[in-house]
C-alpha cells in the first residue's frame, strides 16, 4: 500500500537519510526504532512532504510520485491519504478539541459541517475525551492533547497514520493513556507507521519492526526477530542499551 524507494536527504553537508526503503501493507503496524539522530523523524517528515527529500520514490496505492519533485497536486493528494501525529502535538491553539478534529474534514475534505462534527465526536469518544469537545488545547493536559492529536488523525480515516514519537513529550504517568489509545486503533486495523522509544508497544503491537541507524535501515523483521534474535551487532547494542534489565522479559 505504501512503498518508499531509496530515499536520500541531506541538511547542508550532513547526509541524514542514505537510501532508505520501506514497504507497508494495509493493516500493518510498522514500528521504527533507532538511536537519537538516526533520521527517523526526517524519514516521516519526508513521506509527508514536511521536508523535501533530495531523491527517492513513493508509491501510495495507485499514486506514484518522486519525493524530490512531486507536484503541488500530488503532495496535496498524498497528504489527503495520510495523517500525522506530532511529538509535540501541534494542536491548533486557536481551536477547540472538536474544531481541531473537524478542521481537516471541513476545509481539507469539504465534508458538510454536521457530518464532520459527528465524525469528530466519534473520534474524540474513541480516545476517551467525550467530555472535552469544547476545551482549548491550553486547557488540556499533555496526554489529553496528544489524544486529541490522534483523534484528529483518526477522523480523517487516512490510508496510513504516521506517528513521530507520540509519547516522548509526555510525563511518564501520561504515556499509558496514549499508548492504550494507539493499541486500540491498531487493533481496529488502522495502518500505522510509528517512530517510538516505547519498546513494550513495539513488542506487543508491531507487525513489523525496523531498526535504523546512521540514515540506513540496519535490520528489519517481525518484533520477535528483532527483539529475540537480532542479527546485527548494532541492533544488539541498541537493544541492550534501551532494555538493560528487562531484556529477558521479552523472550
Amino acid at each position: 500500500m505504501l512503498k518508499i524507494n531509496d530515499i536520500h536527504k541531506s541538511f547542508g553537508k550532513n547526509e541524514i537519510l542514505k537510501g532508505v526503503d520501506l514497504s507497508i501493507d494495509k493493516g500493518d503496524v510498522v514500528v521504527i526504532l533507532g538511536p537519537s539522530g538516526s533520521g527517523k523523524t526526517t524519514l516521516l517528515r519526508c513521506i509527508n512532504f514536511l521536508e523535501r527529500a533530495d531523491s527517492g520514490n513513493a508509491t501510495f496505492g495507485d499514486l506514484q510520485v518522486n519525493l524530490h519533485d512531486a507536484s503541488k497536486k500530488d503532495i496535496h493528494a498524498i497528504r489527503q491519504k495520510t495523517a500525522f501525529v506530532f511529538q509535540n502535538y501541534n494542536l491548533f491553539n486557536n481551536k477547540t478539541a472538536i474544531e481541531n478534529v473537524t478542521e481537516g474534514l471541513i476545509i481539507g475534505r469539504k465534508i458538510p459541517k454536521a457530518d464532520a462534527i459527528a465524525i469528530g465526536k466519534k473520534a474524540l469518544d474513541k480516545v476517551g475525551l467525550s467530555d472535552k469537545y469544547d476545551s482549548y488545547p491550553s486547557q488540556l493536559s499533555g496526554g489529553q492533547q496528544q489524544r486529541v492529536g490522534i483523534a484528529r488523525a483518526v477522523a480523517l480515516n487516512p490510508d496510513i497514520i504516521l506517528f513521530d514519537e507520540p509519547t516522548s513529550a509526555l510525563d511518564p504517568e501520561l504515556v499509558g493513556e496514549v499508548l492504550t489509545v494507539m493499541k486500540n486503533i491498531a487493533n481496529e486495523g488502522t495502518t500505522m507507521l510509528v517512530v517510538t522509544h516505547e519498546m513494550s508497544f513495539a513488542k506487543d503491537v508491531a507487525s513489523h519492526v525496523i531498526f535504523m541507524d546512521g540514515g540506513v535501515v540496519v535490520e528489519e523483521g517481525s518484533s520477535h526477530d528483532i527483539f529475540v534474535s537480532p542479527k546485527e551487532e548494532r541492533t544488539k547494542k541498541f537493544l541492550k542499551r534501551v532494555l538493560p534489565e528487562d531484556y529477558t522479559f521479552y523472550i
Partner: peptide, 29 residues
C-alpha cells in the same frame, strides 16, 4: 510555531488555507 502550519497541511489543508485559518488568526492576536 512552525508546527501549527505543519499540522494544518498534514490534515489536508492547502498552504493558503493553513495560513488563512490557522496561522493568521493566531498571529492576529
Amino acid at each position: 510555531e512552525k508546527g501549527q502550519f505543519e499540522a494544518a497541511v498534514s490534515v489536508g489543508l492547502s498552504p493558503f488555507q493553513a495560513y488563512r485559518r490557522i496561522i493568521f488568526p493566531q498571529a492576529l492576536v
